[in-house]
């Protein structure tokens, strides 16, 4: 599903975020990117999401190289990816339901069908009774769950989550981890970047350590990963 071969990323200011990264992720896998802040986890996720372009090497998402796609085809690739952002990126002038409707509108759904799907997604993340609330009136955990609902509402083949437990307490982080595991259990490929050991332990799957711009598979399973 995702293939990175000898991928490097150098920014305009000359800093090198990634170098010589080789990583293959199969459909239905749960992959956890581990590492401290600034290690390159978020850059790796952005490359996987077609948000940024690699400076060297080849990235393939669903068998397509985003660098070779025109804007229209790249948009179609992005529609198959559910993005969960560390800072949520919610639209504050819209309520919870309207936020979840955004990917559906992009995908061409409308009216009652779209609202039905959006409500189902909100129910799934436990926000069924908060559909009229604006993001500003939701707690951090609720905002994160809303972000997840928006990511999964169009039933993407791939979920990319960047520090989804950031700023959440242990109980909320555990709930988010369980949610991601549930989506993975129904066949969705999930790639999570985190530096939270508790969150990491709760997720089962392959662990990839990202350190100083390099990535290494370090194990699989829950507790006991070598970091």
């Amino acid at each position: 599903m995702i293939s990175l071969r000898r991928v490097g990323k150098r920014y305009a200011d000359g800093s090198e975020a990634l170098r010589e990264v080789d990583l293959q992720i199969a459909g239905g896998e749960m992959v956890v990117l581990l590492g401290p802040s600034g290690a390159g986890k978020s850059t790796l996720l952005r490359l996987m999401g077609g948000i940024e372009r690699a400076s060297s090497g080849t990235v393939e998402i669903f068998g397509q190289n985003p660098a070779q796609l025109d804007a229209g085809r790249l948009a179609l690739v992005r529609q198959q990816i559910g993005l969960i952002f560390e800072d949520f990126k919610l639209l504050h002038d819209r309520n919870a339901l309207q936020n979840v409707l955004v990917p559906l509108e992009i995908a061409g759904y409308r009216g009652a069908e779209a609202r039905k799907r959006a409500r189902a997604a909100l129910e799934k993340v436990g926000l069924g009774d908060r559909e009229s609330a604006r993001p500003d009136n939701l707690s951090g955990g609720e905002q994160q769950r809303l972000c997840i609902a928006r990511a999964v509402v169009s039933r993407p083949a791939l979920i990319l989550a960047d520090e989804p437990s950031g700023n959440l307490d242990a109980a909320q982080a555990a709930a988010i981890a369980d949610m991601l595991k549930a989506f993975n259990a129904i066949g969705t490929t999930v790639v999570v970047a985190t530096h939270d050991p508790l969150f990491r332990d709760r997720l089962a799957g392959r662990a990839v350590k990202v350190e100083a711009g390099r990535a290494y598979t370090v194990g699989s399973g829950g507790k006991g990963w070598v970091t």
Binding site: V77, Q80, L83, K89, L91, P103, E105, I106, R150
Partner: peptide, 16 residues
């Protein structure tokens, strides 16, 4: 601006 950037990330086409 923020909304446009977000919907582009979520796969909105230029026409959308």
């Amino acid at each position: 601006q923020q909304e446009i950037e977000l919907i582009r990330l979520l796969g909105a086409s230029a026409a959308f």
